[in-house]
């Protein structure tokens, strides 16, 4: 840990203006402070944004749900509107981290969390994401936890979030406040693929602050399911996870959303797999075909080839469960 300046922001515009290039916003601190203590992140200044009025969850007139950047993961997971209309998001949040971490972690902070690649977290290792041009120790190292989708020669680090996988499936928009004013970015465009510049992780300019994330209007009537596969039952990042949402039109699939976690260098939406589901019978053969399509471009490394069949299993099971729930909710609608 190195010394840094510390200040508190009292309003959003001020926060978005005052930053030095090496400054970092801190909310829950569950990633940032950990990495500062490991000497991986070395901010010159920490700006505490916890006093900013960004803690509301509200419906917009167009049927979308707007979530303030500072809503904690715990509050969001247990928010009645989220539980009722976006259960896959609540499930994903509760599958992540531990109660203590979720109590501190915020919505925007979760979007901004860093990879768990062990070589990223070790300043003595070569890592292009941490230190551009230094190389990648993971590519030929112990890469069990690394990505099979979206990797490059420069970086194969997994984006570790569960929440983001659900948001990728639901569809969302980030609101950013910067020195030049406010702008919006689609969720799927926010995180960058590593390419040759893995250190540029997202579409956020210096001084810009995420102020809200607005979820697309919920699918109705639909079933959704978040399935996280990992070594132990709790408090571990995903080896493979799937957020699945679908609506049924009789025995056929109406709309479908599939996103993957634990396998991609960013929260991994699977539009081609979704296309392969729409209009097809909601049965195992369809799910299997969609899973194969979702993983068609997966590239294994020495120690993570198992993630491809594991992700395939997670997709199929999540779609099966989402279908079961969609049928249940359809039956309830029918009864009502």
């Amino acid at each position: 840990m190195r010394t840094f300046a510390f200040s508190r922001a009292d309003d959003v515009a001020q926060a978005a203006h005052q930053t030095a290039p090496e400054a970092a916003f801190v909310a829950g601190g569950t990633t940032l402070l950990d990495l500062v203590k490991l000497d991986v992140m070395r901010p010159s200044e920490l700006i505490d944004i916890n006093r900013l009025p960004l803690k509301n969850v509200e419906w917009l007139d167009d049927g979308r749900l707007k979530i303030g950047a500072l809503v904690t993961n715990t509050d969001l997971a247990h928010h009645p509107d989220v539980q009722q209309h976006y259960p896959v998001l609540s499930q994903a949040l509760l599958a992540g981290a531990s109660t203590q971490l979720r109590n501190m972690a915020t919505t925007a902070g979760n979007v901004m969390q860093r990879t768990r690649c062990p070589y990223y977290r070790d300043p003595a290792a070569a890592c292009n994401r941490r230190e551009p041009g230094s190389g990648c120790d993971a590519r030929h190292g112990l890469n069990r936890l690394n990505a099979v989708l979206g990797g490059s020669d420069a970086c194969v680090a997994v984006h570790p979030s569960d929440m983001c996988v659900a948001m990728a499936a639901i569809g969302a928009t980030l609101t950013l406040q910067g020195p030049e004013g406010e702008r919006e970015v689609a969720f799927q465009d926010f995180h960058r693929l590593p390419g040759d510049t893995p250190h540029i992780e997202h579409d956020l300019a210096d001084g810009e602050l995420i102020t809200a994330i607005t979820l697309d209007a919920p699918l109705v009537p639909a079933g959704s399911y978040y399935l996280k596969l990992r070594d132990r039952a709790s408090y571990e990042f995903a080896l493979a996870s799937t957020a699945a949402q679908l609506s049924l039109d009789g025995e056929m699939i109406g709309e479908a959303r599939v996103a993957l976690g634990g396998v991609g260098t960013k929260p991994w939406r699977c539009p081609e797999a979704e296309a392969a589901l729409v209009g097809q019978p909601a049965e195992m053969a369809t799910f299997e075909r969609a899973a194969d399509i979702a993983l068609r471009d997966a590239v294994p490394l020495e120690h993570n080839a198992f993630k491809i069949p594991l992700a395939r299993q997670s997709i199929i099971r999540a779609l099966r469960e989402a279908t079961r729930l969609a049928r249940q909710s359809g039956e309830q609608e029918g009864q009502a």
């Binding site: 070589y119 132990r232 709790s234």
Partner: peptide, 23 residues
């Protein structure tokens, strides 16, 4: 331990996996 250089890469309680209460 990384077989290339014998360095220990999971020296923390998130990456060294032990049973949780849920297990």
């Amino acid at each position: 331990y990384d077989p290339r250089d014998a360095r220990l890469i999971n020296a923390n309680v998130a990456d060294y996996i032990v049973p949780t209460h849920a297990d």
